[in-house]
Amino acid sequence: MAKMAILFDAFRCTGCRGCQVACKQWNDLPAEETRNTGSYQNPPRVSADTWLVMQFREVDNGDDGLAWAFGRHACMHCVHPACVSACPVGALYKTDEGPVLYHNDRCIGCRYCMLACPFEIPTFQWNEGLFEGAEIKKCTFCIDRLSAGMEPACVHTCPSGALMFGERDELISVAEARIQEHPERYIDHVYGKDEAGGTSLLYISPVPFQELGLPELGTEPIQEKSEDIMTKATPAVLVTMLVGLSGIYWVVKRRQEMMGKKTGARGR
């Protein structure tokens, strides 16, 4: 299978949250107990029971009027997923087709993936004890649907055509074509094409991407530095230390022995 992706077109999104509810329904996720705290956004963020949250932001553009930005917050299925890089036991893994998935039977619950993810995606079952077995939860790209030849539940449900599922390369062309056709609608950038080395969630938007809740990221994979450290620095340090310390010991010892001979001090 080719690399699959989802295109989110914020211009078309009406913030209806059909996707958010469809995700719960397909994945059989329980509802959370929420409160209205002055926003339509609820649950407030993704969690073990909520893998997709539509975010609501009001943006005052002065004379240009108002924008109500609806941002999709769910796993981006990064091309170079930081969460996968971070997971010490390889419980998270990237499939060839695009989805970033999780072996729940490997996870030790260290939650480093949560820290590593630049999109704040992996979440934890805080209320599961030893017997239930707490797990990390996040969007699965509806892998079960994908393998049955269906599109993800969120995409399937979207009434306004804001979500589109397809091959990543093709979606990038679609996105770029839309921008080209309607330069007045969109910011001239496809978010996710290069961000953090690329993601499988691609965004085009009429408002700055930060208003959709997306972080400003460079083009290099998040884990570039830490992987460099792991693959280059660590072996170097390891060898240097072993050799260096043994060397120092040897030198010190030789000197002491020489001094010991001279002074006749005891030494073993």
């Binding site: 997971c87 707490a134 884990q223 792991m230």
Partner: peptide
């Protein structure tokens, strides 16, 4: 740890890209 009983999984499942792996 979320799964303390699996702390030893570090020994059998390796991801040498992970700093956490080294720390462990």
């Amino acid at each position: 740890l979320g799964r303390p009983e699996r702390i030893w999984y570090l020994i059998i499942f390796w991801n040498h890209h992970s700093v956490m792996f080294e720390v462990g």
